[in-house]
Write a protein that binds this DNA or RNA. Structure first.
Length: 423
RNA sequence: GGAGAGGUGCCGGAGUGGUCGAACGGGACGGACUCGAAAUCCGUUGUGCUCUUCUGGGCACCGUGGGUUCGAAUCCCACCCUCUCCGCCA
């Protein structure tokens, strides 16, 4: 979210940045007229309130002095003024609602380093790591491998819940759990993140602070009759840990990692990735979240990305890093790098992590501030987050990249300590 | 789910209709004293919006949203949250 004043004073910049994202600019013209109405109304209503205050104090003084007659005549006038104020306030509420609606749907302004483009086709590969494996046989998709050895069961999951769910059994379940522990251990012990286990259901205020609401409710699951939403990512509860707080500069950066399941409706993705673990209504993810000063957030994004990459390096899975272009950038993000892992059966890279710097966009929505050393005024922090990594997709990548001719899966060395014996 | 208590500034805690953005205490910051420190003394100490911009005004905010009133932190209604006891449960 941006400040009204910022949009007002930097209208051309906001328009240009919205254009880069391929947005319709008509709403910004509507903003200008509503913003003007709002300020006109404010001047009028505040003037009236000031008068009313003065007159009310007079009434008090007169009554104390026993001059009830004089008080009565002022009271009559003030009563009428109250009606007028009420009318104006009502109008102001309407104008404010219109403005909020617009402002809440204006995306973050992209960083100058973000490549321009209109779709994921314009994303720029900035790095490739590892060697794409060569197979002496036709590599199978992870769901074929898993259904063949009974470790992945999509049919029964559909009976229990529906499409886009999976049951992991035996080795798969064990591997999922090992991956979660491996990732958490790496990030807490080597990268200095503090592990947290947050609520998996959050309220509307939290979803709004991180930007999922009000615009993207269709992507979320909601508990009927409650102000609870199922989290689509740990980003939501973890970023909201410090909502409406003022942190100390010396505490920054704050680095959290969290394992949570994630729940997404995947509305509008019908027919996409209908097989396998790639696109599920429920999946596990280990998420990295940082709160930083504005000066350090670019550098912190680089290390966040490196922290996520290291998971794949240690698992010896080939991947590449892609800089998202302006048109493909998420709503709240000002700069995003995706990590894509190699998937042999599809013969292409698939997203397994998304690392973003949100600048002060989420911090303003959520009131997350810090007090810069030696200053009285607080300032907004920058928030960042990235997957480290999506666990289900990592498991799928291990199945496919580490498959052997007999259909068994070679366990990455680094996971051996998490298994007492092979399944 | 039942019964009760409570939600006020960085913290504690006053305030039950008018001059309360809010007493008092603590903390923090600045200054005085000191070789330095403690103690003591003096002062400062919220956020947002808006007008004018040279200085400076105005409005809103005492859990949230409504209502009563000339006037609400103070009265009324609804809701949310916290705490205690009981019930229930992992």
């Amino acid at each position: 979210m941006h400040e009204l004043r910022f949009i007002r004073e930097h209208l051309d910049l906001v328009k240009e940045k919205c254009r880069l994202r391929g947005m319709d600019l008509a709403m910004l013209d509507r903003f200008v007229s509503l913003d003007q109405s709002r300020r006109d109304l404010l001047v009028e209503v505040e003037g009236l309130r000031n008068q009313r205050k003065t007159q009310s104090q007079e009434v008090g003084a007169l009554k104390k002095a026993g001059k009830d007659g004089e008080a009565e005549s002022i009271m009559a006038a003030t009563r009428a003024m109250g009606e007028r104020i009420k009318t104006l306030e009502q109008k102001l509420v309407e104008v404010d609602a219109g403005l909020t609606e617009i402002v809440m749907t204006i995306p973050n302004l992209c960083h100058d380093a973000v490549p321009q483009g209109t779709s994921d086709a314009d994303n720029v590969e900035v790095k490739a790591w590892g060697t794409v494996p060569q197979f002496a046989f036709a590599p199978k998709a992870h769901w074929e491998l898993g259904e063949a050895d009974g470790t992945l069961d999509f049919d029964r999951a559909a009976k229990i819940a529906g499409a886009r769910f999976a049951i992991l059994k035996g080795f798969a379940s064990r591997l999922e759990r090992a991956l979660i522990n491996f990732m958490l251990d790496l990030h807490t012990q080597k990268h200095g993140y503090t592990e947290v286990l947050p609520p998996f259901l959050v309220n509307t205020a939290s979803m709004t602070a991180t930007g999922q609401l009000p615009k993207f409710s269709a992507d979320l699951f909601r508990a009927e009759g409650w102000d609870f939403w199922l989290i689509p990512t740990a980003e939501v509860p973890v970023t909201n840990i410090h909502r409406d707080e003022t942190l100390l500069e010396k505490e920054l950066p704050i680095k959290y990692c969290a394992y949570t399941p994630c729940f997404r409706s995947e509305a509008g993705s019908y027919g996409k990735d209908t097989k396998g673990l790639i696109r599920q209504h429920q999946f596990d993810k280990v998420e990295l979240v940082k709160f930083t000063t504005p000066e350090s957030s670019d550098a912190e994004l680089a290390t966040l990305l490196a922290d996520a990459e290291e998971v794949l390096q240690l698992l010896e899975l080939p991947y590449r890093v892609v800089a998202l272009c302006s048109g493909d950038l998420g709503f709240s993000s000002r700069q995003t790098f995706d990590i894509e892992v190699w998937m042999p059966a599809q013969n292409k890279y698939r997203e397994i992590s998304s690392c973003s710097n949100f600048g002060e966009f989420q911090a303003r929505r959520g009131g997350i501030r810090y007090r810069p050393e030696g200053q009285n005024k607080s300032a907004l922090v920058h928030t960042l987050n990235g997957s480290g990594l999506a666990v289900g997709r990592t498991l799928a990548a291990i199945y496919e990249n580490c498959q052997q001719a007999d259909g068994t899966i070679r366990l990455p060395k680094v996971l051996m300590p998490y298994f007492e014996k092979r399944f």
